[in-house]
Amino acid sequence: MQEKITQDMFVPVRSDAHKQEYIARKHHSAFHDGWIRLRKNKAAVVCAVLIVVITVMSIIVPYTSPYAYYETDYKHKMNAPSSEHIFGTDLFGRDQWTRVWYGTRISLLIGLAAALINLVIGVFYGAISAIAGGKVDAVMQRIIEVLVGIPSLIIVILFMMVLPPGVGTIVAAMAVTGWVNMARLVRAQILKLKNQEFVLAAQLLGTSRWKTILRHLIPNTISVIVIQVMFAIPSAIFTEAFLSFIGVGLAEPKASLGVLINNGYKALRSAPFLLIYPAIAIVLIMVCFSIVGDGLRDAFDPRMKR
């Protein structure tokens, strides 16, 4: 039995170019990609959660605690930790539990504020320098090269001694030279992107200058910025603690972790617990930020992809 061969058996199957190129896997943006990699990094996730917990606690505890951070009680000076005062009391009978959390709040605030100021100045400076190019870039880079040579700690200490003590002063003093690194990183990143094919393609297709900057250059720089901020926060917290420790930081009864560590150090012989708790707090915060920072860098820095 032979089947009849008809013409319609030889109609070519129309191929759909779209269907051929169809990618079944869901589309991931670069961010989503990084996010997936970050989630796999358990240490970073744990630390990120810890940072959130610490931040929330530092906001809540001073409000809910029965004691205020400045409330003195001379009948209970330097009490060891007990159910009434979880971390004990300090030289003036102030509740250390409240003070540690309050200090954490101030320290985090300073770290965040300093990092944000560095971010704003640094990103604008770096971006303008890189995008403008030419003479503007040359001049701006010479300015940076001059600023890089300034030993920042000396200048910060001088500022702290000249201006009245307070959170604002500390942040301002750190902002004087703190933004330089961010500016350099952002400039380097944008310079690298500026000459890549996708930017050229965008320009060829008639994308306006501003849209190129906003849609193509800035989003590709964000990972660099975020990573730098994650490292800037602990370094600002450290600088503040250092300044308070050598006595040019915040003034009593305000407390930051640095102030608490300084007070604890002075009372170390009779009440070591006064140093231990704020010390643990600052170490925990620094460890968490640096691990999350590392995690972010591994996740978002394409060069680190293996």
Binding site: P234, F238, A241, F242, F245, I261, G264, Y265, L268, R269, P272, L275, A279, I282, V283, M286, V287, S290, I291
Partner: peptide, 18 residues
């Protein structure tokens, strides 16, 4: 490495001294 960068040296100094 993480601890060495995170623990402020004055805290280490205070503890060592004590």
């Amino acid at each position: 490495a993480v601890l060495g960068i995170s623990v402020p040296n004055f805290v280490v100094a205070a503890l060592l001294q004590y």
